[in-house]
Amino acid sequence: MPLIETEVKTGETRQVGSLELTPTTNVLKIQLPGNHGGLVWNRPRAVIVRGQDGVEHTLPVTDVTRMILWAMLGGGLIGALVIGIAYGIRRDKSTRSDNNDG
């Protein structure tokens, strides 16, 4: 088994009324060298819905909580950057005006 492995797994198809549902998952496997442990991260990817007419639709399973958390992290980083730049500009301005006064 490789050290880091990602794969898309497909589960058993379930019949719901006239529809067939096939779940799929994203799996990330990390194995420590020497078979001394590892990590498995298994998360839902999508549900493939097959109708009576045989047409398949893929319904992605979106992790809204994670998306919000990433957005907050990104917003926080951008906010920190903007505050830092604004603070730097303000400090430069005040230093220049002080020098001019002096």
Binding site: P23, G37, L39, V40, W41, N42, P44
Partner: peptide
């Protein structure tokens, strides 16, 4: 549906 994270060492 749920995400599952398992770690072992």
């Amino acid at each position: 549906t749920a995400e599952v994270l398992s770690a072992l060492g």
